[in-house]
Amino acid sequence: MTITFGDWITEIANWVFLAIALPTLGAAVLVVSAKNIVRAVLALVVTLAGTAALFLMLGAEFVGWTIVLVYIGAVIILFLIGIMITRAPLTKNADLSQPISMRVPAALLSVILFAVIGGAVAASFGGAAIPLPDEATTTASIGETLFTNWVIPFEVVSFVLLAALIGGIALARQDPAEEGEV
């Protein structure tokens, strides 16, 4: 079944989709084009928030709020702290602007990547629509599947994360003896 543009545009939800998607897209462009590193990160926040909102629209509440909690609430904050502790000039960062010779291939690559992924998704799902879940969200079922069918991958992933955590601490922590030598 195909959806005409007329059908599409009369549906109020699609307006909401546009209201979210367009700023998200704009913010995404801003992330790579911003002249100030903190602003770029803040634009990334908007992009992520938009993505989260799209997930919410699709009824994937758990994923949506996870993006907010993990990406905006933790990852971005750590980005910002890292930047601000080391250097956070309020002016433009000179080393952020790349020469044209680097911009053009980057833009080209992005467009190709988008085309490939978009094409692949469209080709495999086409106009297939998944009905929005009713009242209950899918969180319970996510949890259930995670801890029954996928419990081993889940544990493996958490183990990897733990290892990464320990590795991070080991890297960041200065050895007192070494410090003494220097």
Binding site: F62, I72, G73
Partner: peptide, 13 residues
């Protein structure tokens, strides 16, 4: 449904 999870996510903003 995710009330508590939502709270944690939003307050981190």
């Amino acid at each position: 449904d995710l009330g508590v999870f939502y709270l944690l996510a939003v307050s981190s903003l």
